[in-house]
C-alpha cells in the first residue's frame, strides 16, 4: 500500500470540506459548518497499474484546512511534506480564484519538492448548469492559468459528486507514476532475494513507507 499526504487549500466556503466528504464518505451536507483549524480524514483507493497484474492500493491522508484568514498560519504545517495539494476555488466567486492563485504561489515558493502535485479545482459546477447560470469564472481562464503554472485542472461539483472521484484518482495515478520506479526497484530486489533463498528482513515488514503495523 502506498501512502500519500494530501492537503486542501483555498478561500473560505469554496467547498473544500464538501469535496473531501464527498470523496471519503460520499455524502453531502447543505448546511456544513465552517472548519476550525484543520480536519483530518483518510481514504484508500485502488488504481490500475500497467505493469502489474494486481491493482495498486493508495491511501490518502487528507488534511482539510480552514479557509478563514485566522487559520492561515496553520497552513504551512500541513502543506509541508505534502505529496499533493488541492487548491480549490468557487466557480461562482471571482475572488476565490485570486485567492487560489496566491495559494499556488505560496506552494511553489515554500515547498521545495519538485514532485508536489498541485491540482486546481473549481467547485460548485452544479450551480453553473441550467437556466440560472451563476458562473463567474470561465473555464478557459482557469485552464490557461493551470497550464501556465503546470497544474492539473478540473471543475467538479461536491453536491452532485461530479468529477470528485476522478480528481483523487488522477492524483493517485500521477503520484504512483512518479514513485513507480522506486517501488518497482524495491519489489525486484525482494524478488531477487527470494530467489537467492535468503531471508530479507525488509520483506517481513509492510511495504513502502507505511509506518503503521497491526498493533502499533
Amino acid at each position: 500500500m502506498l501512502q500519500f499526504k494530501l492537503v486542501l487549500l483555498g478561500d473560505s466556503s469554496v467547498g473544500k470540506s464538501s469535496i473531501v466528504h464527498r470523496f471519503v464518505k460520499d455524502s453531502f451536507d447543505e448546511l456544513r459548518e465552517s472548519t476550525i483549524g484543520a480536519a483530518f480524514l483518510s481514504q484508500t483507493i485502488k488504481i490500475k497499474a500497467e505493469e502489474q497484474e494486481e491493482d495498486v492500493v493508495i491511501k490518502f491522508e487528507i488534511w482539510d484546512t480552514a479557509g478563514q484568514e485566522r487559520y492561515k498560519s496553520l497552513a504551512p504545517m500541513y502543506y509541508r511534506n505534502a505529496n499533493a495539494a488541492l487548491v480549490v476555488y468557487d466557480l461562482t466567486q471571482k475572488d476565490s480564484l485570486v485567492k487560489a492563485r496566491s495559494w499556488v504561489e505560496e506552494l511553489k515558493n515554500k515547498v521545495g519538492d519538485e514532485d508536489l502535485v498541485i491540482f486546481l479545482v473549481g467547485n460548485k459546477l452544479d450551480l453553473c448548469e441550467g437556466e440560472e447560470d451563476l458562473r463567474a469564472v470561465d473555464t478557459s481562464e482557469a485552464k490557461a492559468y493551470a497550464e501556465e503554472q503546470n497544474l492539473l485542472f478540473t471543475e467538479v461539483s461536491a453536491k452532485t459528486g461530479q468529477g470528485v472521484k476522478e480528481v483523487f484518482r488522477s492524483i493517485g495515478e500521477k503520484l504512483y507514476a512518479s514513485k513507480k520506479d522506486e517501488i518497482l526497484a524495491k519489489k525486484n530486489r525482494e524478488l531477487g532475494n527470494r530467489v537467492n533463498n535468503s531471508v530479507d528482513i525488509n520483506a517481513q515488514r509492510p511495504s513502502t513507507n507505511d509506518t503503521t503495523t497491526c498493533c502499533s
Binding site: I36, G37, A38, A39, F40, R70, Y71, S73, L74
Partner: peptide
C-alpha cells in the same frame, strides 16, 4: 498571540481526533 491561540485550538482539536 493570534497565531498562538490558533495553535492551541488546533492542538485541542487534534487531541479529540
Amino acid at each position: 498571540r493570534e497565531e498562538l491561540m490558533v495553535l492551541k485550538e488546533q492542538s485541542f482539536m487534534i487531541q479529540t481526533m
